[in-house]
Each structure stands twice: as structure tokens, then as C-alpha cells.
Computed example of a mutant assay.
Amino acid sequence: MTPIELAEKLHARDVVLLAGRLLLSLIFVHEGLQLATHFEGAQKAMAALGVGTPLLIATIALQLGAGLSVALGILARLGAIGLGLFCLMTASLFHTNFASQNELLHFEKDLAIAGGMFILALSGPGRLAVDRVLSGLAKDTKIDPPIEQHLSVGETSLPV
């Protein structure tokens, strides 16, 4: 049995996608919970940055809603796009003082997370997702495109 056959049998791709989804979403769910449970302090801190209460509430809703969406695999592609765009906006609006090493690090972190979210949006959540379970009730419904084998080089890729 080749490594590719073994990985396909164990559904390693789906396990890795699940782990990636959980790791990517953790920061958003955690931060959304922190903002929600410490709302008054968050409100004061955001006001100092020029962010009003309606935008703070929208941020909490996005972080919790899209974060759980990605983690659970419920409309994960949409949640990943939303969080990816959120990271790009956060980087460009709040982390542009590159003279500060800390701000540069946050800028780069936000760009990296956005990249991961956009990759997730393209790849899909995999088979270990609530969407898959719900659609699986209607028999053999496929959410993700099949992986094609390139016979000449033995690589796998998603059809485009």
C-alpha cells in the first residue's frame, strides 16, 4: 500500500482539515468570548481607537459566528471568507505602525491568518464537518470536489 493509498484510507486529509479549522477558529472564538464577557472594558478600549459600539457588536458577532462556523464546518467557506477579510481589514486599519516590532508582528499574523482562511475557503471543510453530516442524511451527497490523481507524476490536486 502506497502512502497516498494509506492516507486516502485513513481520510488523513479530512483529519488535517478538521485540525486546521479548529486551530484557525480558536483565536476568533476566544477573542469574541473575551469581548462579549468584558463588554464595558472592550467598549472603552475600542472607543479609544475610534471604534463605536455598533462596530464592536458586529465584531463580536463575526468572531463568534464565523469562528464557530469554521470550527464546526457549518457554512465554513463563507465563515472563512468573512474572517479572512476581517483579518485583512484589521491589519490595514490597526497594525500599520511598522516602527513597532509588536505592531509589525500583529500585521504579519493577521495576513497569515487571512491566507489560511482563504485556503480553507477554497479547499472546503472536508468530510468531518456538520454540513457534511447534514447533507449526508440525503445519502451520498458530496460537498467537496473529488481529488484527482495525476498519473504522470503521482501528485494529487483539486480540479479547477
Rank of each mutant, 00 (worst) to 15 (best):
I4Y: 11
L17D: 07
E31W: 11
G73M: 05
A112K: 06
A7R: 13
G116W: 02
L75M: 09
I113Y: 09
T59G: 08
L23M: 13
S25E: 03
L6H: 13
L75G: 09
M117W: 11
H30K: 04
S100A: 09
H150V: 01
H11A: 11
A138R: 15
D110I: 00
P145Y: 10
V133H: 08
V70Y: 06
D131S: 07
E5D: 07
F107Q: 01
P145W: 10
H30Y: 07
L158W: 13
I60K: 10
R13M: 09
L17N: 10
N97R: 01
A19D: 08
L88C: 02
L17S: 08
K142R: 15
A12T: 04
S25G: 09
A112C: 10
G67R: 05
F107R: 01
L17E: 06
S123M: 07
S157I: 02
A121D: 02
L23N: 05
R13Q: 13
L85I: 03
R21Y: 08
V130N: 07
A7V: 06
G50I: 12
L26W: 04
L18K: 12
L26H: 05
G126H: 11
A99M: 00
A7T: 05
A80D: 12
V15N: 09
G50V: 10
G126Q: 11
L78D: 14
S152M: 05
G65T: 15
V70E: 05
L104T: 05
P125Y: 03
P125M: 00
I4N: 12
V15S: 13
F39Y: 14
D140E: 15
N97I: 00
I60Y: 08
G82R: 00
A48V: 11
A121R: 08
K142A: 15
Q34N: 04
L24P: 09
G79Y: 14
M46P: 11
Q63N: 10
L64R: 00
F28D: 06
T141M: 14
L33I: 01
E40Q: 15
L75T: 06
L72P: 11
S69V: 01
L104N: 03
A47Y: 06
V29Q: 12
G52E: 15
L104V: 02
A112R: 08
L49I: 10
A129I: 01
L88D: 06
R21E: 03
L33H: 03
K44C: 12
V51L: 03
L26M: 10
A76C: 15
L78I: 15
I113G: 11
G154Y: 15
A99S: 09
L128Q: 03
